[in-house]
Amino acid sequence: MLILECPYCGVLADETELTPGGEAHLKRFGPGSSDEAFHGYLFERENPRGVHFERWRHSYGCGKWFHAARATDTLEVFGTYSAQVFDPPEEIRKKITAKRPGWTWKDLS
């Protein structure tokens, strides 16, 4: 069972209390962008074995969206953080590096 701490209300929320929101930190390509960029925005997703960044919503609780950094192979959770950021905060990256030296995800490491 995946348990994530909601960074807004502080509840240790069970997976059944949350709604998954897919991959985190997508850059939107809308009207005016190339077909390739729009295709990438719609369909191209990471599917890593290991470190991954996701969006979740505390839907049965406070209702807020947030970000989570976790490992897909072990279900280990590195941390959760605010939805109002474009990249994972330094503190979360340090925690991941401490546990998984040499990790990469898209252009992050």
Binding site: Y8, C9, G61, C62, G63, K64
Partner: peptide, 8 residues
């Protein structure tokens, strides 16, 4: 008063 969310 019941606290429902950080803004509710």
């Amino acid at each position: 008063l019941c606290w429902m969310a950080p803004d509710e």
